[in-house]
């Protein structure tokens, strides 16, 4: 079952819910090694994304065709405009690059991998970070590696996203012993060890939502199914 724009919208709405639930946890992680605004900032950003999706749904005619990239582009520009911290341009660039490779009505497993690869490339180039520096790149890279392997084994879109989500979750936990060398946490040097990186954790949430959206059909949060 290839994934379409409705999946992308469910992904984003589920991400907004997951971020809302984890807002305090993310903020607490960020308070330990950053500037303590990650949860609030991301929550504000994804709430704005949901509001714009609602507006777009109200304006859209029933026959209008959307691509996956259309949804991801809206997410990108909204996050960049509303988040206010470094995660705005970082996630914004991830979604922007992902949108550029997904300008199609449906995407199959290899195309899902390409979306994740583009997102990783966006985060890494915008943040000038590489693996092992205790940033969200650690989670994105692990997700891409796992997704490539799953797709190479002939896995479905759900298989690919499941592999990505599980790898990102594990990689986020794996940032705990690391010493940060990029981002705000790097100012702490060795004192950054022992804390999970909030960006890696939120990346795991984002990818977990992508998997859940692929496993499920339209959710009650989707206004068109509620109407």
């Amino acid at each position: 079952m290839a994934l379409d724009a409705d999946w992308a919208e469910r992904w984003v709405r589920r991400t907004a819910d997951a971020v809302a639930d984890a807002k305090d946890e993310l903020t607490e992680l960020d308070r330990q090694i950053g500037d303590g605004d990650h949860g609030e900032n991301l929550h504000r950003g994804f709430q704005a994304v949901v509001a714009r999706l609602d507006d777009a749904a109200a304006e859209r005619g029933t026959g209008d065709e959307r691509t996956v990239g259309d949804v991801l582009k809206l997410v990108a520009t909204t996050l960049m405009s509303t988040v206010g911290g470094a995660s705005g341009p970082l996630y914004g660039t991830a979604y922007l690059r992902a949108a550029k490779v997904s300008g199609r009505v449906q995407i199959d497993s290899p195309a899902v991998v390409a979306v994740l690869e583009a997102a990783l490339e966006g985060v890494a180039s915008r943040g000038k970070a590489t693996v092992g520096e205790k940033t969200m790149v650690d989670a994105w890279q692990a997700a891409v590696d796992a997704a490539e392997a799953a797709s190479g084994d002939g896995g479905s879109e759900v298989d690919v996203l499941q592999a990505a989500a599980e790898a990102a979750d594990k990689a986020a936990t794996g940032t705990i012993p690391m010493i940060a060398t990029k981002g705000r946490a790097s100012y702490l040097g060795e004192r950054s060890a022992g804390h999970e990186d909030p960006g890696a954790r939120s990346t795991a949430l984002v990818l977990g939502a992508a998997m859940a959206a692929a496993l499920s059909g339209p959710t009650p949060a989707d206004p068109r199914s509620a109407a």
Partner: peptide, 14 residues
């Protein structure tokens, strides 16, 4: 600092 620079870069990419 970080997000100022990143956001300018994002504006140039957009």
């Amino acid at each position: 600092l970080g997000s100022s620079v990143l956001t300018v870069e994002a504006a140039l990419e957009l």
